[in-house]
Design a protein around this nucleic acid. Structure first.
Lengths: 243, 243
DNA sequence: AGTTAACTCTGTACGGCGTACAACGTAGGA
DNA sequence: TCCTACGTTGTACGCCGTACAGAGTTAACT
């Protein structure tokens, strides 16, 4: 089944090619492969989503995976689109643009916290998937009330989503997090020796930011700080170019 | 020479351990390994920076690389810190905060365009390197004139730099760029068939954004759009919390 | 009904990767 | 002089993605 990626992305669409009828029916669908890959990535990280482990999880041989997916890079695109497709896209009702944009930002943050591996997938071809397009359309409508032309509307949405991605990246649990206390214990003294009294501002601010990061409340603080600024930055457009 | 990463990062500092004097002098320094890795990444991409290729480029055996660097992940940290260390950090003079922040943003954009592989390195331990700390200190001073406490100042700088990283990521040349025209030629018709008249907003805006992206002037436009918004979003702080 | 062609499934194999380990060579300190 | 710390290297192991060829299965065609 060497169907092209575009047809695999749209495999649930009525117009999608279904492949010939000859030969044995495959025991597994492309959708099942993608789902298995997603749950594997959710539970053990994207790095463990190897073709071999995926075949094992599905109860098929390693090479059989390639019956349903052309190559690993394609699989990553399918995974990302599947994750986007599963996002709830609640109607905005008569909410104002601030509420709408905040809703979009919250939904995307939740998405990336639930599927951190999405941050590691950066393939332009994802843009042509049905889930991605549906999400894009829905999120563009959050900006309906703002007087932006098409290009500016796309740029504004990108601006918001890039902020969310950066916030999600900062919140992501470092795979080295378990060792960091020991590492820090070994490093702190030596680093202090190297630094001495140099860079007092960096030392003070960095120390404060580091403590804040362990304060548990920090991520929410940084999120609110940034999101408020993002919203403010879009506000002038709402009041016309003269504001 | 199994020195710890922290000591390798600060290898040029007078207080850094130099290792014993016994045995043959190594023909190559850690700095040379890092430099070779950076130029290799600049010219052929980070994926080609393998231990084997690095040894080849340096004229030493594969395993000799491990004499100067503990593991590949450590090498990436050293590379990132080296890139930061090489950034020019010009004095701000009496420029206002807007000029300063713009200068910081421009410098970081230039850095990421010159070394796109920096976007692929995301290791918290980089924060403890001398180049990274010097850069951090310098950039924090760009915000001197803004009435921000330490935690907010760090958050504001992160906000700016995250925007720059996202912009650089968008400008980065996709490794699949060469094939995209052919891919698109094969996909365009089928995608139109799948989409039909659905998602008219997404189709219109996406089309406009896509055309704009081929307009060569687009990246500068998006950059100016976003940067202006980032600066505006910091402005209220300058006028006090009441504004 | 028999043949053919399309299709799934699988095992083997190749060239890559990071790196553990042991052997060997080389130099200063005792 | 011998010891010992250190640099250098080759081999080997367990991963990875995937090309390829063969075997088994089924519907369509003659």
């Amino acid at each position: 089944m060497p169907r092209e990626l575009i047809d695999l992305l749209w495999r649930d669409h009525p117009a999608a090619p279904q492949g010939g009828t000859r030969g044995p029916r495959s025991r597994i669908t492309t959708g099942a492969v993608v789902d298995a890959a997603c749950t594997l990535a959710d539970t053990e990280g994207l790095a463990t989503v190897t073709v071999r482990r995926l075949g094992e999880a599905l109860g098929i041989s390693t090479m059989s995976v390639y019956t349903h997916v052309n190559e690993r890079d394609d699989l990553l695109v399918l995974m990302a689109d599947a994750a986007y497709a599963r996002m709830p896209l609640p109607a905005y009702g008569n909410a104002g643009w601030r509420t709408r944009v905040r809703q979009v930002a919250d939904a995307n943050l939740a998405l990336h916290l639930e599927h951190p591996w999405l941050l590691e997938i950066d393939d332009e071809r994802t843009a042509f998937g049905p889930g991605t397009i549906a999400k894009y359309d829905h999120e563009l409508h959050a900006l309906d009330a703002l007087p932006l032309d098409d290009v500016a509307r796309d740029a504004a949405l990108t601006f918001v989503l890039d902020f969310v991605r950066a916030a999600a990246r900062a919140r992501r649990r470092d795979p080295r997090a378990d060792e960091m206390p020991q590492i820090w214990a070994r490093w702190a003294g030596r680093l202090a020796g190297y630094l001495g009294d140099d860079y007092p501002l960096a030392q003070r601010v960095g120390g404060a930011a580091g403590e804040e990061m362990n304060a548990a409340s920090s991520p929410e603080h940084a999120w609110e700080f940034g999101l408020a600024r993002v919203l403010d930055s879009l506000a002038p457009a709402a009041d016309g170019p003269g504001a």
